[in-house]
Nucleic acid binder design. Structure first.
Length: 854
RNA sequence: GCGAGAGUGGCGGAACUGGCAGACGCACUGGACUUAGGAUCCAGCGGGCAACCGUGGGGGUUCGACUCCCCCCUCUCGCACCA
C-alpha cells in the first residue's frame, strides 16, 4: 500500500502539473458554451485570510465543476491594489506604497497558488498598474464629455483619520466604513459621478436580477429610495418668492398649517424678519455645529424657530408660519417640508411643542378625529374632509386628483424623488488613480488630452503623518503646461475613490493586455456578463451598486453590449470564531488563556460570542498554518462542508480534523483495494453479489444525481459532500469487495470525480493511482444512470393516525390496493388498528400509508 | 420605527413540491486491535423506565406540518426624522 496521504507533496505535484499544462487558460471562442466565474478580487494587504480561503474555495468548486461539465470557463484573479493601507505603510514604515503593494501581491499570489485555485493567471491584473488605470482615466474623460462626471462645491463627508472625503455609501452610522472614526461635514469642491441619472434604471433592473439574493436587491432598492409625490410651490406672503416643497402626501395639502425649512435652506435668512434675526441666526449656527451622528440619532430632540415670515397654502390661502426645523434635511427633496401635523408624526410633535395650528383632513372610519385630543398623527388611509371639492374621496384617490389639480393650476407637478445622491469620487490621497484634469488660470478647467494619458502617479513624493496630499506637495507633478494655451498650469491632485477601479475590473479581465482602449469589444461581448459572481455581502450597496452603474455608463458610451454585469450573485457568510476577553487586558489570543484564565493577570477570561475573525479581536486563524498542517485540500473541504456558503462559517479545529480524516479514509480505501481497482476481472454473478452490486450501483448513481443537483441548483456544497461521504461509507461497509471489481471501480471513480471540485489535488492523485493520465477534469463530470436508480421493491412507512407503526416492503409502483392490503396485514400495524373503526386509508405511492382509525 | 433573514440534539448542520425529524460531520460512551493511542475498525448516541413527548411560544388548516395560515417572543443584518 502507498505510504500515508501526505498533502504537501501531492499538492505541489499537481500545482506544477496544472501550471505546465496551462490547465486553466481561457480562450474566447470555440464550440463550448462560455461560463464567466468571478470572485471579488482582494485588496493586497499582505496575507490572505480565512475569508479569502472561503470565498475562493466556493468559487473554485464552481469553476472546476463547470469545466468538467464542458463549459469554456474563464476564472480570473487580480488585485484591487490602490488604497489607504499602502499609504499608511509609507507613512509609518517609510516603504513606498508601490513597493509595499507589489511585495504583498507576490506573497498573496504564492498563497493563492498553494491553495490550488484554478485561475487563469495569464489574465492577472493590478489596478495600480498604469496600464490599468490609464483606461480608467480615459473612461473618466468620456464621462466628462457626457456630463456624467462633474465638479461641484458641496458639503461632503470628511474622515479626519483617513484625511479624505467619503461617498455617502461609505459612511456607516456616521462613521468611516474603513477606520470607523466619526465623519465630519466639510465644504469642498469635489468630483462626482452622476449615478442619479441611472437611479431609475438601477432600480428597475433589481426586479429582473433573478439570480441575485433578495436581501441584496432589497438593500439596493432601499438605498436608491424612490418615492412618488409632488413638488408644490408655496407663495411667501408679501413677497414674490416661493417656497418649493416635495411631498408624497399631497392628499394632505389642505391640512398644511405651517412650513418647515432646513436650517441650511437658502431662503432661511432671507425670509427672516429683522426682529427675529438674532434668534434665527443663533439657531442656525447651533444646528450647523452639531455633527451628523447627533442630528441623525434616535432621540434627537425636535427643535425649531419661527422666522417671522408667512407663506400661503396654495389651495386654501391660509397663512402658514415659516419655521426652521432641525430635522429637515437640506439634501433630500427641496430642503423644505409642508407640515401637516395631523397626519405626520414629526410635524405633530413639532406642532404640539410650538403650539402651531392643526386641521384634520383625513377621517378614519369610526369616531371622528379631533385635533385637540389627538395623541398622535393619523397616517392610515381614510376619507377626505376639510378639503373643498375633494371631500368624501378616499385619500388614495385624492392623491391623484390633487396632483391633477396642482398640475392644471400650475401650482406644482408630479415628481419622483430619489434618496440616492451622486457618487463623490475625489480622494485627497496619493495611492490612487490621478484624475486627469489641469487647471489653467486662463482657460479654467482643462481635461488632459487623450494622447497624454496616462497621467502617471509620480514616485518621488514625500509622506507626512500630519497629512496633506503628497501629490499636492509634489511640484514636479503639480506644475505643468495648459494643454490648450501652453501657459503654466496646475494638475488636479485628488485621486479617484478606489471603488472606481473595482467598478470595471471584471470587464478588463476579458482583455487584460488590450492596447487600444479600455475594453476590447469582441472579447467583452463574448465573455460578459459574469455568469456567477461570489463575494461578501458587505458590498451590497457599495461595489455592487457602483459596478452596475459603471456597466450602464460603459454601455451608453458604446464600449460594451451588456447593461448588467453580474447575472448571478452569491454572497457568502463571514468566517467566525470564538473570542476571549480579559477584564484587565482586553481581547486575548487563545494562547494567552490557560485553563480559562488570563495568563497575564490570572483573571477569569470571558468567553465571548462567535465573531467575525479579525486581528483586533485576536480570533484569526492563519490559512498558512492550516495549509502547512493539513494541506490545502483539507482547508478547502472544511470551509465547504461546515456550513452552506451563504451562512456564517464557524471555525472549528475539530471540524478541520474531521475533513482531514475523511480524506485519509478515502485514500486508504483506494490504496487498500488498488489491486481490485486496477486489475480485477468482471463482477461475479452469484445472487448475494448481484444484490450487493445492485444496491451499490443505486447508491453510486443516487449520489451522482444529488451532488450534481446540489452544486448546480443550490450551492449546497455541504450536503453534496455529505452525500459523497455516505457513498464512501456504503463502499466501505460492502463486504467481499474482490467479488465485484467493476462496481468497486465505478464507485471509487465516481467518488474521485465528484470530489474533484472540492479537493482537486487529492482527486488528481487518486485518479492517477487508478492508472489514468491527463487529469480528472478531462474525464468530465459523471452522469447518473436512471436505470440504476430503479428499485424493484420499496420500503414504505405505515402510519396509524399519523404515527409510524410499521414498515412494509412492496414492489415499486404497486397498485394502491395491494399496498393497502399489505399495510393492514402488517402485524405491528394490526396491534394499533385492532378493534377500532377504520375511517380512512391514505396511500401515497412510493412514499407511505396512513391508516386513520377512530 | 421600517425592511429583510433566521430560530431544529451537547455542537456545526440535513430534511427539495406538506409524507419516517435529526442525513453527514464533530463531541461523547462502550468494545476490538495495540507497548501505547490523540491512529484505525466495530457498536451506540434527542428526552423519558414506559405509554409517550419533542423543530422559539400559542392558535389554526390537513389523514399528515420543521415545511402552509394567523398572533406573539428572541436573535442577526440593512436603512433610519427621506417629508
Amino acid at each position: 500500500m502507498e505510504e500515508r496521504y501526505s498533502p504537501g507533496s501531492v499538492e505541489k505535484k499537481w500545482q506544477q502539473f496544472w501550471n505546465a499544462n496551462h490547465s486553466f487558460r481561457a480562450l474566447a471562442g470555440g464550440a463550448k458554451k462560455k461560463y464567466y466565474l468571478l470572485e471579488m478580487f482582494p485588496y493586497p494587504s499582505g496575507r490572505i485570510h480565512m475569508g479569502h480561503v472561503r470565498n475562493y474555495s466556493i468559487g473554485d468548486v464552481m469553476a472546476r465543476f463547470k469545466r468538467m461539465q464542458g463549459f469554456n470557463v474563464i476564472h480570473p484573479m487580480g488585485w484591487d491594489a490602490f488604497g489607504m493601507p499602502a499609504e499608511n505603510a509609507a507613512i509609518e514604515r517609510g516603504i513606498h506604497p508601490a513597493i509595499w503593494t507589489y511585495e504583498n501581491i507576490a506573497n498573496m499570489k504564492a498563497q493563492l497558488m498553494k491553495m490550488g485555485f484554478s485561475y487563469d493567471w495569464e489574465r492577472e491584473l493590478a489596478t495600480c498598474d498604469p496600464e490599468y488605470y490609464r483606461w480608467e482615466q480615459l473612461i473618466f474623460l468620456r464621462m466628462l464629455e457626457r456630463g456624467l462626471a462633474y465638479k461641484k462645491r458641496s458639503a461632503v463627508n470628511w474622515c479626519p483619520q483617513c484625511r479624505t472625503v467619503l461617498a455617502n455609501e461609505q459612511v456607516e452610522e456616521g462613521c468611516c466604513w474603513r477606520c470607523h472614526s466619526e465623519v465630519e461635514p466639510k465644504e469642498l469642491e469635489q468630483w462626482f459621478f452622476k449615478i442619479t441619472d441611472y437611479a431609475q434604471e438601477l432600480l428597475d433592473e433589481t426586479f429582473r436580477l433573478t439570480g441575485w439574493p433578495e436581501p441584496v436587491l432589497m438593500m439596493q432598492r432601499n438605498w436608491i429610495g424612490r418615492s412618488i409625490g409632488c413638488e408644490i410651490d408655496f407663495p411667501v406672503a408679501g413677497s414674490e418668492r416661493r417656497i418649493r416643497v416635495f411631498t408624497t402626501r399631497q392628499d394632505t395639502l389642505f391640512g398644511a398649517t405651517f412650513m418647515s425649512l432646513a436650517p441650511e435652506h437658502p431662503l432661511a435668512l432671507e425670509l427672516t424678519t429683522p426682529e427675529r434675526r438674532a434668534e434665527v441666526e443663533a439657531f442656525i449656527n447651533r444646528i450647523r455645529k452639531e455633527d451628523k451622528i447627533k442630528r441623525t440619532s434616535e432621540d434627537y430632540e425636535k427643535e425649531g424657530v419661527f422666522t417671522g415670515a408667512f407663506c400661503l397654502n396654495p389651495v386654501t390661502g391660509h397663512q402658514m408660519p415659516v419655521m426652521l426645523a432641525n430635522f429637515v434635511l437640506m439634501d433630500y427633496g427641496t430642503g423644505a417640508v409642508m407640515a401637516v401635523p395631523t397626519h405626520d408624526q414629526r410635524d405633530f410633535e413639532f406642532a404640539r411643542k410650538y403650539r402651531l395650528p392643526m386641521i384634520v383632513v383625513i377621517q378614519p372610519p369610526g369616531p371622528k378625529l379631533d385635533p385637540e385630543t389627538m395623541a398622535a398623527a393619523y397616517t392610515e388611509p381614510g376619507a377626505m374632509v376639510n378639503s373643498g371639492e375633494f371631500d368624501g374621496l378616499d385619500n388614495e384617490t385624492a392623491k391623484e386628483r390633487i396632483a391633477d389639480h396642482l398640475e392644471r393650476q400650475r401650482l406644482g407637478e408630479r415628481k419622483i424623488n430619489f434618496r440616492l445622491r451622486d457618487w463623490g469620487v475625489s480622494r485627497q490621497r496619493y495611492w490612487g488613480t490621478p484624475i486627469p484634469i489641469i487647471y489653467c488660470d486662463v482657460c479654467g478647467m482643462v481635461p488632459v488630452p487623450e494622447r497624454e494619458l496616462p497621467v502617471i502617479l509620480p514616485k518621488d513624493v514625500e509622506f507626512h503623518p500630519e497629512g496633506g496630499s503628497p501629490l499636492a506637495a509634489c511640484p514636479s507633478f503639480v506644475q505643468t503646461a495648459c494643454p490648450r494655451c501652453g501657459a503654466p498650469a496646475r494638475r488636479e491632485t485628488d485621486t479617484f475613490d478606489t471603488f472606481v477601479e473595482s467598478s470595471w475590473y471584471f470587464l478588463r479581465y476579458a482583455c487584460p493586455r488590450f492596447q487600444d482602449g479600455p475594453i476590447e469589444r469582441a472579447a467583452a461581448d463574448y465573455w460578459m456578463p459574469v455568469d456567477q459572481y461570489i463575494g461578501g455581502v458587505e458590498h451590497a450597496v457599495l461595489h455592487l451598486l457602483y459596478s452596475r452603474f459603471f456597466t450602464k455608463v460603459l454601455r451608453d458610451l458604446g464600449l460594451i453590449r451588456v447593461g448588467e454585469p453580474f447575472l448571478n450573485l452569491l454572497t457568502q457568510g463571514m468566517v467566525c470564531k470564538e473570542t476571549q476577553k480579559c477584564p484587565e487586558h482586553g481581547w486575548l489570543f487563545p494562547e494567552e488563556v490557560a485553563e480559562g484564565k488570563c495568563r497575564k493577570c490570572g483573571a477569569e477570561a470571558v468567553v465571548g460570542r462567535k465573531e467575525k475573525m479579525s486581528k483586533s479581536k485576536k480570533n484569526v486563524v492563519d490559512p498558512d498554518v492550516l495549509i502547512n498542517e493539513y494541506g490545502a485540500d483539507t482547508a478547502r473541504l472544511f470551509c465547504l462542508f461546515a456550513a452552506p456558503p451563504e451562512k456564517d462559517l464557524e471555525w472549528s479545529e475539530r471540524g478541520v480534523e474531521g475533513a482531514s480524516r475523511f480524506l485519509n479514509r478515502v485514500w486508504r480505501i483506494v490504496f487498500e483495494n488498488l489491486d481490485i481497482l486496477r486489475g480485477g476481472g468482471p463482477d461475479q454473478s452469484d445472487p448475494d453479489t448481484a444484490e450487493t452490486v445492485r444496491s451499490l450501483r443505486r447508491a453510486i448513481h443516487q449520489t451522482i444525481k444529488k451532488v450534481t443537483e446540489d452544486i448546480e441548483h443550490r450551492f449546497q456544497f455541504n450536503t453534496a459532500i455529505a452525500a459523497v461521504m455516505e457513498l464512501v461509507n456504503a463502499v466501505s461497509a460492502a463486504s467481499g469487495k474482490e467479488r465485484f471489481p467493476v462496481t468497486m471501480r465505478e464507485a471509487m471513480e465516481s467518488v474521485i470525480r465528484l470530489l474533484n471540485p472540492f479537493v482537486p489535488h487529492f482527486a488528481e492523485e487518486l485518479w492517477s493511482a487508478l492508472g489514468y493520465q491527463g487529469g480528472v477534469e478531462a474525464a468530465g463530470w459523471p452522469c447518473w444512470d436512471e436505470a440504476a436508480l430503479m428499485e424493484e421493491k420499496k420500503l414504505l412507512v405505515v402510519q396509524v393516525n399519523g404515527k409510524v407503526r410499521g414498515k412494509i416492503l412492496v414492489p415499486s409502483d404497486a397498485a394502491d390496493d395491494l399496498v393497502r392490503q399489505t399495510a393492514l396485514a402488517d402485524p405491528n400495524v394490526v396491534r394499533f388498528v385492532e378493534g377500532k373503526e377504520l375511517r380512512k386509508v391514505v396511500v401515497i405511492p412510493n412514499r407511505l400509508v396512513n391508516i386513520v382509525v377512530a
